[in-house]
């Protein structure tokens, strides 16, 4: 049995009641939750930054959490962002109302992020071409897609766990 220090972020946010059947189910999948935590680190705080600083990643994650209307998730990433003392331009990424300058690198990154988060079915080859035209490297496009994709997973896992707890 793991101690409280091994409780992962998603478990903490889901506020599982110790000893409940849901808590037992989550504990029986503790490997999955530990690996979920590891992917959080890899997407948000990688050793190899590529073209996205830790602050930019935290700001993008805050934006994605807000687009998913998840206040708790957004608060987590906003605190992560704040702790990294972002400059004004980076901090503004976190606001879904901010779209950056048209044709700029960050403008292209935000257009892509909003589309992949909210409407992935409508992504087209041109959306990747727009990032490339804005100077985003192919490796950074993959990093950006992974960050988006991880957040999509994390937000849904958390939403599902909360529903299970509330509908107990």
């Amino acid at each position: 049995m793991e101690g409280p220090e091994d409780v992962t972020l998603v478990e903490k946010w889901a506020a599982l009641e110790p000893g409940s059947p849901l808590h037992a189910a989550v504990r029986s999948r503790s490997d999955v939750f530990a690996m979920t935590e590891a992917t959080h680190e890899a997407a948000l705080r990688p050793r190899d930054l590529g073209g996205f600083s830790h602050a930019e990643r935290a700001a993008l994650a805050t934006r994605i959490a807000r687009l998913n209307e998840d206040d708790e998730l957004a608060a987590h990433y906003a605190a992560m962002l704040e702790a990294l003392s972002p400059d004004e331009a980076t901090a503004s990424i976190a606001d879904p109302g901010y779209s950056g300058d048209a044709w700029s690198r960050i403008g292209a990154v935000l257009t892509f992020t909003d589309l992949v988060t909210m409407n992935p079915k409508d992504t087209k080859p041109d959306d990747i071409a727009a990032l490339q035209a804005a100077g985003v490297s192919d490796a950074d496009i993959v990093r950006l897609a992974e960050l988006n994709a991880f957040l999509a997973y994390q937000a849904r896992l958390l939403a599902g766990l909360r529903l299970m707890r509330r509908a107990a």
């Binding site: 992935p120 079915k121 990747i128 897609a145 994709a149 999509a152 997973y153």
Partner: peptide, 10 residues
């Protein structure tokens, strides 16, 4: 939600 955002996007 994760896999689709890689496979369908990239």
């Amino acid at each position: 939600g994760w896999a689709n955002r890689l496979m369908h996007v990239l």
